[in-house]
Computed example of a mutant assay.
Amino acid sequence: MTGLALSNVEVVYDKVFLAIKGVSLEVGEGEMVALLGSNGAGKSTTLKAISGLLGPERGEITRGEIRFGDTDLRPLGAPARVDRGLVHVLEGRRVFGHLTPDENLVAAYRGGKAERSFEELRDEVYRYFPRLKERARSKAGYLSGGEQQMLAIGRALVTEPKLIMLDEPSLGLAPVLVAEIFAIIREINQKHGLTVLLVEQNAAATLEIVNRAYLIENGQIVMSGEAETLKRNPDVQEFYLGSGGKVDYHAIKHYRRRKRWLA
């Protein structure tokens, strides 16, 4: 069953700049899918189009359809999308630095709309991220980068999501922390069937945990497939996994890298 489906979505900023151009992708219910690409490729814009956060940045969807299950998301505001089980963990963590981890989690709790008690959801977050429980009395602004990322994900889990979208969760973190956080995301996906859309530049780590991936360049999807298939693709290896290694670029005076899909 399709959890999330985008069909030919276009986004324009300031009524002038076309940021994403006919993006189509699907994330099946309970699936873990990645959207890979370099800086400025359109990854974050795609997530904001899904979560309803384009407005504050003067962006708008000018074409296409976004469906979550049987629901057309385009007429809905961001809070209504959260109520339907869709949550977006923004790039840069964005925790409330003046609040403790507990208070951050309370801020995300949906109160009377929630199916489970806050205490139950909080304890579940602390089981996944025991380090947060150890720092429960600290202000979130004093947590390490990895702990803040754990808190941002935990805060999203308190909303009882059906689909969680993670924007660059590895940004600025040491490889050991990236591996730890990715392993926990994978565990949550497998244990609870939580649908995950993961936006990343770190293709090597991401392709180890997802089922499928899409590759976006200049606002367009240029490649998609099973994670194992993309890992074996020579273009993906050269430009995103850093394992091409067949050309001595320093020995060539006028070498211009050209991706096959852009040729």
Rank of each mutant, 00 (worst) to 15 (best):
A156E: 01
A156P: 05
V158I: 14
V158N: 00
P161C: 10
K162M: 11
K162L: 13
L163M: 07
I164F: 03
D167C: 12
E168W: 09
E168V: 10
G172T: 09
G172M: 06
G172F: 07
A174P: 05
A174R: 12
A174S: 06
P175F: 11
P175V: 12
V178N: 02
E180Q: 11
I181V: 11
A183Q: 11
I185E: 00
R186E: 07
Q190M: 10
K191T: 09
H192L: 13
G193W: 04
T195W: 00
T195Q: 01
V196T: 08
L197A: 02
L198V: 08
Q201P: 04
A203E: 01
T206D: 00
T206E: 01
E208G: 14
E208Q: 14
I209Q: 06
V210P: 06
A213T: 07
Y214R: 14
E217H: 15
G219F: 07
G219T: 08
I221V: 14
V222T: 10
V222E: 02
S224G: 06
S224E: 08
E226T: 07
A227D: 02
A227S: 09
T229Y: 07
T229D: 06
T229C: 00
T229E: 10
L230C: 04
K231L: 05
R232H: 08
P234H: 08
V236K: 02
S243H: 05
K246R: 12
K246F: 12
K246Y: 13
V247M: 06
V247P: 03
V247E: 02
Y249G: 05
Y249D: 05
A251L: 13
I252D: 02
I252C: 07
I252K: 06
K253S: 09
K253W: 01
R256G: 12
R257D: 06
R260V: 15
W261K: 13
A263K: 15
